[in-house]
Write a protein that binds this DNA or RNA. Structure first.
Lengths: 348, 348
DNA sequence: TTTAGCACTCCGGGAAAGAGAGTGCTAACC
DNA sequence: GGTTAGCACTCTCTTTCCCGGAGTGCTAAA
């Protein structure tokens, strides 16, 4: 049996109607929406074929049809009309993204909330940590006898600093020595190796200095490892409760719990600018009957982040895809403009 | 009519039974739980009185009784037995609070998640921003011709820093002048006044320096204002869906939406170590038929934060109160130990 | 004041009935 | 051969009705 043009057109109507109403679609309604050029009986024959082909499903014998995952897939790949964002929408997106880069966390959670309320589904945002981030430069600023400030610039040019309280008094004149040591021995060094280095210089310096040095390194390791972690932020989970497929509190609870407790398992594909995962295409059990649309954005030149939307399989793919990629582009632009690196660490 | 001891005892039984089961409590069950010393008929008379007195309500004529807000209030104030935390629980709390102070946000959101999963209700955590935070000390570290690092220590001894890109080259030798200027004119100054100060020194220095100065001040204002904002974090909203009173998706949605979108309206009482708000005692509409238990913790010597729990009016007040104050104490201890200020800004 | 007894109320669940939507099949039509 | 009208049939959803159970409120006696 062949998938004729008319069958495809019918499938399209079914998918779009079902997305809109969440109700099985009947032959009569389809006939009307196709302009009355064919009768409902004809449609019924076609529908029956589409079920046999696996593109549609029938909740029970005498109900209308709903798309199967395979049907959604065909729709997404071939039938769906790509939407463009209206100027108004583009403006709204840009408005929503007017955060300050400084606080990456805030910006991203803000973006998450914005996209979620923009598509009316829960959303997630991930900034991929930079695994092998190293320190590029250290400074120590003496404050008083008992404390000094450690300043560390990282490979991505972000600067972190903290007040350190000294267990032992340190001679101010020795500070420069220490800074030199830090900059010569601990820049460009992966965190895993830092402690080894620390040991190796132990004998060269006084115990007081060594104590301060190890405090500094401990701080550096903390910060670098923290920066290396991938952070995932979810927003708008409560949007689910508006959807008929989640009126059942148990279903809703399962998914919402997943969104807040097991974020790590959200899809993080690493190819292509946008990916759509429909129902069972998701690896994670909790997402087996939901769909996920996920897009990537660039952070500077060589890092990528992801933003995604989670919804029912009858998600409005066209709109979500358009808006999501709008956001992704917005974020990319944002990072282009604001990202700090004037020059990257010359790697060779 | 008087509130006899027996009536109080009956009220206690009703409240505790209802908290456990979420089902109206009947006279027979009460009689049994009171050791069979009186018959159910006697209880019925008493129950009828308790309804007249406003402590109990009857969902419909032939149903058992449930506590009214007034009943809960009496229970909380006088009838409830204060619980102590078991050693195990205390340990768990301390374990959950083993975060690093460095990232205040993270610590608090972690605490929020912990308390939420500890009491099985949604929780919120607020760190009251320090409104009149000022800069205590500035430093500038030259990086290269086009950039330098600004380091600012704030009144609470937290240190913030960022890489600045210079629009105009600045003579390295002039840096110390600028740092002096910053420390003499811009420390201890409220953000609102900073721009005025900036103008007043405009003529004293070269345009290049002025540009860098204003970049620095802009950064300082940003950071200080950001730090002055009260931040509210919510966690565990999905816990609601486990409760019978929120199986109705609309109710759940309303409250969850409130928790994620209108956090600012969560109760922020400013007196006493712990406060319990029952049903209509809440000012906010969205909380009118929920209860909130909120405790405060100390951040250093003169700041306070809040942690709260939101749940149904039939919340398990005794347990929640005990655990919440356990957390509050844990947080207070944590800040005592880790909070940086070795000395506070001498205010006079 | 307490208690046993009893009629009454109300909710919740289950069965039955009916309406509605939609199908699948057959037979006729172009 | 594809298309269509017609019609019986299926299945769900809603409404209605009924019944059992839990619990009350009242009365009269202890």
């Amino acid at each position: 049996m062949e998938l004729t043009d008319r069958k495809r057109q019918i499938l399209k109507v079914v998918v779009e109607d079902y997305i809109r109403t969440a109700e099985p679609v009947g032959s009569k309604a389809i006939a009307e929406q196709m302009g009355g050029s064919v009768s409902s009986a004809t449609i019924r024959n076609e529908l029956s074929d589409l079920v046999d082909l696996g593109y549609l499903e029938q909740p029970h014998t005498s109900a209308g049809r709903i798309p199967s995952p395979k049907g959604y897939r065909l729709y997404v790949n071939e039938l769906m009309e790509r939407q463009k964002l209206s100027i108004l929408e583009t403006e709204k997106i840009n408005e929503a993204l007017h955060g300050k880069m400084e606080q990456l966390d805030h910006l991203l959670s803000q973006a998450g909330r914005a996209i979620s309320s923009f598509v009316n589904y829960p959303a997630y945002v991930a900034a991929t940590g930079r695994k092998n981030l190293t320190a590029r430069r250290f400074d120590l600023l003496a404050v008083d006898e008992h404390s000094c400030i450690v300043v560390m610039m990282m490979g991505d040019n972000r600067v972190k600093s903290q007040l350190l309280r000294l267990q032992l008094k340190v001679d101010l004149e020795q500070m420069p020595t220490l800074v030199n040591l830090l900059n010569s021995h601990f820049t460009g060094v992966p965190t895993a190796e830092m402690n080894k280095r620390l040991m190796s210089v132990a004998e060269e310096i006084s115990p007081q200095l060594f104590l301060l040095l190890s405090q500094t390194i401990a701080y550096a390791v903390d910060v670098l490892e923290e920066a290396g972690q991938r952070e995932i932020i979810t927003a708008g989970a409560s949007q689910l409760l508006k959807l008929p497929e989640f009126r059942n509190a148990d279903k809703a609870h399962e998914l919402m719990n997943f969104l807040s407790e097991s974020k790590e398992n959200l899809p993080m594909p690493d190819d292509g600018p946008m990916q759509i995962l429909i129902g069972p295409e998701n690896v994670t059990d909790a997402l087996k009957d939901t769909s996920v649309v996920v897009a990537s954005y660039d952070i500077g030149d060589n890092m990528r982040g992801l933003i995604g939307v989670v919804g029912p399989t009858r998600m409005n793919y066209a709109t979500v895809a358009a808006r999501l990629s709008g956001f992704a582009e917005g974020l990319t632009r944002l990072f282009e403009k604001q990202e700090l690196p004037p020059k990257e660490e010359p790697k060779k």
